[in-house]
Design a protein around this nucleic acid. Structure first.
Length: 491
RNA sequence: CGGGGCGUGGCGCAGUCCGGUUAGCGUACAUGGCUGGGGGUCAUGUGGUCGCAGGUUCGAAUCCUGCCAUCCCGACCA
């Protein structure tokens, strides 16, 4: 099996890193904290983009693009927003280089200093709301439903491939509405879109919930999120949707005239998911043999490997493979026929297994004689031999089965690692020994939340929207609690 | 920014304490043979100013000084 790779049990962070590197998803770059997303990893992102983009369009959104650089003054217009992001902004101060005095290199030209520094966007609310002021005049201009696909920069202290990098790719939706109710509805609708994407496409179950004040987006009234449990028992925030109230409308003076002729501030939402989802995908499904990809997001769904000793054998195998690939492609399945003579079959088996290709077909001389093919599925590592035409017919069904099996498997793991907690002692014990999602009562104060974080490193991941709604007493202070909330150590 | 580690062919490392000819090993790469149903094997070969600068010495990957890079641990975070 996999050799020289870390195991989940042995060293989870190393296991994760090994998969990302050796499955050729990404690598570190010359710039500290920034990664190169390699073609195989980028293909997964393209699949995610395509699915999400369609869902955004289907819910009435249009794509647009706003500048990478934001005037410093824009960022400071919303007080909470700047407070949250100030510490991690990259700043552009000059616009020209010149040859250094010794002639050997280039230096920043001090005469080319910008009058106002530009910030590389850590998120685009401010630059977008500056435009919205011009775009919105009447209730007829609303709702305004815009999304942008972009890169952003947040100067993080410690980075990890996909999970936290200085620059990352994402989408950010920014909407404006006439009423509070509409904006709130939009916020929740997009959270539902993310939930559906995570569960249907990524085969990753998520908890929907509301963030505590402490974890809220800088500038939001409320932040909703989806949280997923990784195989090491830590939680990962997979997407967020913010109800911004009128905070940005007021900061950028975005008003509209309603039907009765009155001037009103608009109501807003913003929502985003990033390339972090690729990290989530890796940690949700993969095993000690490498990456495991859900068929709906796999760049290659079926790989075909010929086994032969002589050219004549390869020729007759290739002839049959041509029929198989045509048939699969007609069904919309992505197929790769790897007939390279530079690698041996065994090497290829391991290669594609490590890269998480859902189904492998092997055809050798024995199969040609018997009229069969061997199908191997990545999720269970099962191998079966079928009469070849029958095997090909079964593939769409097997892909569907892998997709649903991965979801069920992940859901089962989450259920096994979700613990009902009554006392703080029990909380500490379970967190230390098992990890996972800990459901416990909390009095609703930031003070208590920070105490728990200080004691245990666990944070409130969310106040679940689909909780049991049973009242109780805070496990720390004994004060009343409306419902249990989800605690976990987080990425 | 505080504490620790590391820097030697593309990658992973040994050698450094205790200085001594042509700087090794694994892997990868190249060519050829035998192979081919789970990372095969044998042979041959390419590739390194030992992070940079200075110093000590007959002689430095090895000792000394300074600098740079990078990684891990803490505070921040999608």
């Amino acid at each position: 099996m996999a050799k020289d790779f870390a195991t989940r049990e042995g060293d989870f962070p190393k296991w994760y890193n090994d998969i990302v590197i050796k499955a050729d998803l990404a690598e570190n770059s010359a710039v500290r904290g920034c990664m190169v997303i390699k073609p195989y990893g980028y293909s997964i992102w393209e699949k995610m983009q395509a699915a999400l983009d369609k869902m955004f369009k289907d819910t009435g959104h249009l794509n647009a693009y706003f500048p990478l650089l934001i005037p410093k003054s824009f960022l400071s217009k919303e007080a909470a927003h700047i407070k949250g992001f100030a510490k991690e902004c990259a700043v552009v101060t000059h616009y020209r280089l010149k040859t250094s005095d010794d002639g050997k290199g280039v230096v920043v030209d001090p005469t080319a200093k910008l009058e106002e520094e530009l910030i590389i966007r850590p998120t685009s609310e401010t630059i977008i709301w500056h435009s919205y002021k011009k775009w919105i005049n009447s209730y007829r201009d609303l709702p305004l439903l815009i999304n942008q696909w972009a890169n952003i920069v947040r100067w993080e202290m410690r980075t990890r491939l996909f999970l936290r990098t200085t620059e990352f790719l994402w989408q950010e939706g920014h909407t404006a509405h006439a009423t509070e109710a509409e904006a709130l509805e939009e916020t929740k609708k997009m959270l539902d879109v993310y939930t559906e994407f995570a569960e249907t496409w990524m085969a990753m179950p998520v908890l929907k919930g509301l963030k505590s004040e402490n974890e809220r987006f800088a500038g939001a009234i409320d932040t909703y999120c989806i949280e997923a449990l990784m195989q090491d028992g830590k939680s990962l925030q997979a997407g967020t949707s913010h109800f911004l109230g009128q905070n940005f409308a007021k900061a950028f003076d975005v008003k509209f005239t309603d039907k009765s002729g009155k001037q009103k501030f608009v109501w807003a939402s913003s929502w985003g998911v990033s390339t972090r989802l690729i990290g989530a995908l890796v940690m949700a499904h993969s095993d000690d043999n490498g990456l495991v990809l859900p068929p709906k997001l796999a760049p290659i769904q079926v790989v075909i490997i010929p086994i032969y000793t002589e050219k004549e054998q390869l020729d007759s195998i290739s002839e049959r493979v041509q029929i198989i690939t045509d048939s699969l492609r007609e069904k919309g399945i992505s197929v790769k026929y790897d007939d390279r003579d530079t690698h041996k079959p065994g090497w290829k088996f391991n290669e594609y297994e490590f890269k998480g290709v859902p189904i492998r077909i092997a055809i050798g001389p024995r199969d040609m004689e018997a009229g069969t093919i061997e199908l191997a599925r990545r999720d269970t590592l099962e191998k079966n031999t079928y009469e070849w035409e029958e095997g090909v017919e079964k593939i769409p069904g097997i892909l569907d089965d892998i997709q649903s099996n991965l979801y069920k498997r992940a859901l089962k793991k989450r259920e096994e690692n979700t613990h009902e907690i009554e006392t703080y002692d029990e909380f500490k014990k379970v967190l230390k020994e098992k990890g996972g999602f800990l459901m416990a009562h909390w009095d609703g104060t930031t003070e208590t939340e920070l105490k728990i974080k200080g004691d245990t490193k666990a944070t409130i991941r969310c106040i679940p929207m689909e909780g049991d709604g049973k009242e109780g007493k805070c496990m720390v202070t004994g004060k009343p609690s409306k419902q249990k909330v989800v605690f976990a150590k987080a990425y």
